[in-house]
Amino acid sequence: MTLMPDATSLLQTHYNHLMQHRRGDSNDDLIAKMYASWLCGQGAMPLNLGLPLDVFNSMMAYHFPTLPHFSRPSQLRHLDVGRLPELDDLRTLLHQSHSHPGPDVGWMVEILCAGCMGSDHLWQDLGLWSRKDLSRLMLDNFKPLAALNTNDMKWKKFLYKQMCEGEGIYVCRSPSCEVCVDYQACFGPEE
């Protein structure tokens, strides 16, 4: 994520403030990065990171129990309602492979679904700071699914490929990824 120096400073300030109030859970860092980015207008996350307000408040209270109040971003994005049917399939895929114990199950599923509605790389749409953050999110929260990404396919493409294969839909024309003309689009660098 490339930001202007002032924006980077504000992003870091929001992040540091949140981390002073963290619970100590493995997702605290990732949620703090997404929330700080959301406050700074980065990424493609909709209102409350895609969660209903009461659920968002519960998540923030769980991960940052001593945080006195939550700021709200000045620019609000909304989910594209025309794409809601695909969210059900994505939710099903993610719920089937959630591996993180505790209340994060539903929260991370919904946040990932909202991030998939963006038009950039998933880590950028989520407001994470690198693809490495997204890989950690996937491995920590969706380990059985993440383990299937043996060739390090871009995460959003990987998730949609898994949904298609689960439905018996094979849209790729190549016999294998390695000989596909679109190989770079699926496996190339994202930074």
Rank of each mutant, 00 (worst) to 15 (best):
D28V: 06
Q75D: 15
V81A: 12
D182Y: 03
D152E: 11
Y35S: 09
G127P: 05
L47R: 10
L11E: 10
R136Q: 13
V109I: 04
I111W: 02
T8M: 15
S26I: 10
A32K: 12
S71G: 12
P68L: 09
H17C: 14
L76N: 12
S176C: 03
D120P: 07
A61N: 13
D28S: 10
A185R: 00
Q124Y: 05
M59T: 08
M163R: 05
T92K: 04
G118T: 02
R22C: 13
C180W: 02
S174M: 02
Y183N: 04
R131A: 11
E191Q: 13
L30A: 09
G127A: 03
L67S: 12
L10M: 15
P101D: 15
P68D: 11
R131C: 06
L137N: 04
L67N: 13
L134H: 04
P52H: 08
E86Q: 04
C116G: 01
L53V: 09
V55N: 12
K154Y: 02
R173D: 14
R173W: 05
M4R: 15
T66C: 10
A36Y: 05
C186R: 00
W129H: 14
P52L: 04
R173H: 08
H100K: 11
N151I: 03
K132Y: 12
G166V: 01
H14Y: 15
L49Q: 05
L145E: 00
C40Y: 06
M1N: 13
C116N: 01
R77W: 05
I31Y: 11
S58D: 15
L47M: 10
R83D: 00
R22S: 15
M117I: 00
T13I: 13
P189S: 09
S119P: 03
S71M: 12
G106S: 12
I169G: 06
D120G: 05
F56Q: 07
